[in-house]
């Protein structure tokens, strides 16, 4: 009986700890992102890590989110399934997701992002202005994009990233095209300018 109770408690603890809450990232204080990058925010954000990915938001991920996908290794999808569940995006099982290869060019990485979003049910994903841009002091790339959610909400986004030691680091900011994307765009740019890669 005691064992059964103990197992139940253990299961409960595991279940609760699986739900990592958001924590506050305070203005001006450097934050370690997914154990891989550091950034210094210019406004207060809420953030939460799931596996190699970490989501940042102010008003809630439905309205805007800045997501860091860090240390994506050869053969891996951008993020584990648990991440897409967490942010409430319809999702596919890992086996059905496109995967990263260090031999990919920036163009193929942009295609990978498009395919990942499309595969997760987002519609009309179109990217523009794919161009070289440094990322955390490394030679990297950037692009802008738009898509529509299944509910019909138009979203806008931008991505910046780089390959460091054959691993992909990419930060993707999306927001409702009306109001929210613009609302935090400059705060996102400031935050990304402060980005440093700690491990890769």
């Amino acid at each position: 009986m005691a064992t059964k109770l103990r197992m139940t408690l253990l299961a409960a603890v595991l279940a609760i700890s699986a739900c990592q809450p958001y924590t506050l990232a305070q203005t001006g204080k450097p934050v370690l992102v997914a154990d891989s990058l550091t950034v210094t925010p210019s406004i207060d954000w809420s953030h939460s890590a799931i596996g190699n990915a970490e989501i940042w938001t102010v008003d809630g991920p439905l309205l805007e989110d800045l997501t860091f996908f860090t240390n994506v290794d050869k053969g891996d999808p951008l993020a584990p399934t648990s991440f897409w569940i967490r942010i409430g995006m319809p999702y596919q099982k890992e086996g059905k997701m496109p995967t990263f290869d260090p031999a990919m060019s920036a163009l193929e990485i942009a295609d990978l992002v498009r395919e990942t979003y499309t595969r997760n049910g987002q519609l009309n994903f179109t990217y523009t202005d794919l161009a070289p841009q440094p990322f955390g002091g490394n030679k990297g790339f950037r692009f802008d994009f738009t898509f529509t959610t299944v509910e019909g909400l138009n979203k806008q986004g931008m991505a910046v990233g780089a390959l460091v030691n054959e691993k992909l680091h990419i930060a993707i900011y999306t927001g409702a095209r009306e109001h929210y994307f613009e609302k935090y765009k400059s705060a996102v740019e400031t935050l990304l300018n402060s980005l440093k890669i700690q491990r890769g």
Partner: peptide, 12 residues
């Protein structure tokens, strides 16, 4: 459960 999840659910 985030608010975003309800949309697909209602749609489904």
């Amino acid at each position: 459960m985030t608010p975003r999840s309800h949309g697909p659910r209602m749609f489904i």
